[in-house]
Design a binder for these strands. Structure first.
Lengths: 156, 156
DNA sequence: CCATTAATTGTGTATATACACGATAAAACT
DNA sequence: AGTTTTATCGTGTATATACACAATTAATGG
């Protein structure tokens, strides 16, 4: 009476397609490629645009503060920033606290940000239109709150 | 009359926080970590669980077919499968068409999938409860449709 | 003032992701 | 049959991501 049921394809289909993680990752891939395609003429990829914006916004800011702002692992940000530093868009120097290293935009970085911003708007608008503005707004809010909810995890 | 306005922080804040790409990526990171934490005892990470499920579901299937099913770049899937092959969970052999290479689960792979499934359900339920079941369902649908919409891009 | 603790960072390692390119095999077209 | 086109695949390269660990500096407590 304990025989394994061999055919569970129907179950597995549902597992795959109802998985929050799979769908979040899939959406993330799709959206990233969509933005990258549109923003390509600016030579700024979508994730980099986000980082340039954060550095610009927060002025000279430490790696940890930037990472918190972007909800990114600190060490991930270190590597991501390195790409921008190598491209001359960001510079990293010492802070008041000698443990800290603070990042700020170079002139080239500000240029890149200015160049990319209209394309970013274009991508943003295209998504909103494609998906329906109201629904898009709602989903954006949902995604933000979901992330915030999870990140707040005490993890005791 | 054409001076650049120096202080646009308010604008930049909105750019960062309203960006579909940023929020999709952020949600993807958060959800992945959440699932990984819960599924950790099974030694199967969430993205790998998805792939095991796909391979299990589609039986011996070619890399291209699996990639299409998962909405993943084909070459990405090749690398991801390698990890599972190295762990002995998946085996890859030649197909009828001698260009194809088909993947299927090993016995260890089926074990891992069985071991991980209850934990996956646990993560799934926790998210749904945390976020509210109805809202969760809606968001899942939104994410799926958004991805599908973008992937369908003719890209003429 | 010294010792311990806390904060800030980078590096090693590993997975996830995609694009450009080239190799091989099947299919289609003279 | 021979040539061309299409399909299937892997590899080189590069970015994005996070965890475990170690180094350095600041803060705290006797």
């Amino acid at each position: 009476m304990d025989k394994l049921i061999q055919k569970q394809p129907p179950t597995q289909v549902r597992v795959a397609w109802h998985c929050t993680c799979f769908n979040a990752r899939r959406a993330s891939r799709a959206v990233t490629q969509f933005y990258d395609d549109i923003m390509e003429p600016s030579d700024v990829k979508a994730p980099q645009f986000t980082m340039l914006g954060a550095v610009n916004l927060m002025g000279p800011a430490s790696v940890t503060r930037l990472a918190e702002h972007l909800a990114l692992d600190r060490t991930t940000l270190t590597r991501n920033l390195k790409v921008l530093v190598d491209q001359g868009l960001v510079e990293i120097g010492p802070g008041d606290d000698r443990r800290e290293r603070v990042a700020s935009l170079t002139e080239a970085g500000r240029d890149a940000l200015r160049r990319a911003t209209p394309l970013w708007h274009q991508a943003q608008d295209a998504i909103a239109e494609k998906f329906g503005v109201d629904r898009w707004r709602r989903m954006l809010e949902d995604m933000t709150e979901l992330a915030a909810l999870i990140e707040a995890e005490p993890d005791s």
